[in-house]
Nucleic acid binder design. Structure first.
Lengths: 355, 355
DNA sequence: AAATAATATGTGTTCGTGCACATTGTAGGA
DNA sequence: TCCTACAATGTGCACGAACACATATTATTT
């Protein structure tokens, strides 16, 4: 069952022509009579020719510059993970001539995003990976990139009605829906649950609203609105201010509160509060394996987190660009990463970055 | 920041010698004076030479034959998934000269395993991927493979005190532990839980015993033995026999039964029973996304499954062989795949085989 | 000292592809 | 009829590594 590799030379022989001509047919370089062209195409089909990727890549020595337009990891530990994924992809893809430049912006500063995006565009890269945190600000760049035919991959934040090469991330709606399911599973009796947005600029964060909607819809779709009361709260945690006092008031006015669903990776703020006040009968669910969340999973104040796999988002984002540009694969426009449910007992298996 | 690729020729120039000599140093082919050898090695180090994998692979045209010694998918749908993973790895690795032969055995017949393993060994492959279901029978083959220096990767069933290239699969103990956690989370009140082994030859299935131990230990370690009663049952489901009657008796004699933990992928047998008898207050947790389990997750009779990611096991198994033999990477001796918790609300994201 | 053996080092071809360049073929204009 | 223009086709080199083979250098024997 030894599969003989079909080479350009083999095709040329069968077609009674030379490898130059076959090459011209393969790459549509013209200067081939229609008659020969068809004959060669037919034989290519028949012999099931597949270009030898190794030889191709060795010969052309083509290099690809990708740019990752991502938030500064120093501002929020969440953004450390995509960088790890980027680095992993970079390492694996270097031998194919792919290099990745980072253009780092401040996730709380639109202006910094705009100037970094300008710089990135000026570099005229072969592909872009973008965390499009600022909806309004990023739109004109999409246009620009489309005009210059630069494929761009979006991750973390899904944006409707644009045409990226693909989106990589989670289904925000469904992740809210899942959070509701888990909490309901653990709280068979009627109670109050809270959706909590911490330190977020909500009008600019459509995906958080989508999570909240998914969470609330779970109760509607399962006819549980009479049993559970869902309240929504926003809170800003400012260093130095008395968070505990502020949040204590919120809790005491919330009635029979038994569960809190934090829509971003800052569940550790609440876990800290619960620990300081020795509150053990409020279930807490949040997002992401950032170090402080891991700490509170380990000591039991966070019950579950949903892993958004930010590492995988960075990794797959770059890989999709490579798949498209280098390996010429078809790319599905959306790659939803799984909604991993993580709790103390399966935590450690998600910490291995090798995965 | 353009990284100039370092070639053998570059090293030869810097060392004032020829590429032939550098090549001899690189491959320890001898016939090089100690003096030159050291100089070349030093320069290789200095210039940070990394062989161009593409050129290497193109030139050598080395082919690798891997053999997958796996159970017949026709006997149990669980075994369909590793085959999909194998096929995926095969496709990605074909261009590196890797081919995979399947040696399929009957998972209920030791003899068929032995004869397939004999045949596989006789082929003298470059690497083996084995599901070592039969502990006693597989041991002598490990010896043989080690003597012939054939690396072998184990998956699905972990075996102690042998030296595979690596093991790929789950931590059975921890998965039982996790199952107990989930059920306890959903059942805050005291009740009885059942560990159920369906159609299994227990003495030959150490990993199922390990799961059971993990499950039971959860209650011990969390001081819950007074609250929850855990019972253990084995049942064989034979086509045609009245399963419902047999199982009905088991249930009714079990007292306040509120949860069943099925240790293999056959939770669907119980789900079917629960559906036929319209029992809705028994939580059911099992393993794996086989089609019939998916069916019962969708209609609510299975609450959770833990995904053993059999597809990933096949995929990674082959990839580890390739990483070791072809890409010369270091291989960690154990690769535990995550304990994915799957329920209706996040099911679909685990069904995409592309992941 | 010359012949031979043994060791050390250098050169050239090959893998499959892409592309530059060389060659052949043919039609049309002088 | 010869020359030119241009389309059609063929040839050869390069990419980086591996290996066979050729050549140079030194050591050993006669």
């Amino acid at each position: 069952m030894k599969k003989r590799i079909v080479r350009i030379k083999d095709i040329a022989e069968r077609a009674e022509t030379s490898k130059g001509t076959v090459d011209r047919v393969l790459h549509n370089r013209g200067r081939v009579s229609e008659e020969v062209r068809e004959k060669v195409l037919k034989i290519i089909e028949e012999m099931n020719y597949e270009p030898n990727f190794l030889a191709q890549s060795l010969k052309t020595q083509r290099t690809y510059q990708f740019i990752a337009l991502v938030p500064d990891p120093k501002t929020d530990p969440y953004w450390e993970a995509p960088e790890i994924g980027l680095a992993k992809a970079e390492k694996e893809l270097r031998q194919y001539g792919i290099s990745i430049s980072r253009f780092i912006f401040d996730p709380h500063d639109e202006e910094s995003f705009i100037s970094r995006a300008r710089e990135a565009t000026a570099e005229n890269p072969d592909g872009l990976l973008v965390a499009p945190l600022f909806y309004k600000e990023v739109l004109p760049f999409f246009k620009e990139w489309e005009n210059s035919n630069i494929p761009y991959v979006l991750f973390n934040t899904q944006i409707a009605d644009v045409n990226p090469l693909c989106y990589i991330g989670q289904d925000s709606y469904q992740s809210g829906f899942l959070a509701a399911k888990i909490l309901t599973f653990g709280l068979p009796s009627a109670c109050t649950m809270m959706v909590l947005h911490i330190n977020e600029d909500l009008p600019n964060s459509a995906h958080l609203i989508t999570k909240e909607k998914g969470f609330k819809d779970y109760f509607v779709k399962n006819n549980l609105t009479d049993k559970y009361r869902v309240i929504e709260t926003e809170i800003n945690f400012v260093q130095g201010e008395s968070f505990d006092e502020k949040f204590g008031q919120i809790i005491s006015s919330a009635g029979d509160l038994k569960a809190i669903y934090v829509t971003n990776s800052r569940a550790f703020e609440i876990a800290g509060y619960l620990e300081r006040n020795q509150i053990k009968d409020i279930k807490l669910i949040g997002y992401d394996l950032v170090p402080r969340n891991i700490h509170y999973i380990n000591n039991g104040y966070i019950d579950f987190v949903i892993n958004q796999n930010p590492l995988g988002q960075g990794y797959w984002g770059i890989f999709q660009l490579a798949n498209y540009l280098v390996f010429k694969k078809e790319i599905a426009p959306i790659k939803f990463l799984p909604l991993d449910i993580i709790t103390l007992e399966n935590l450690e298996y998600y910490l291995d970055p090798e995965q």
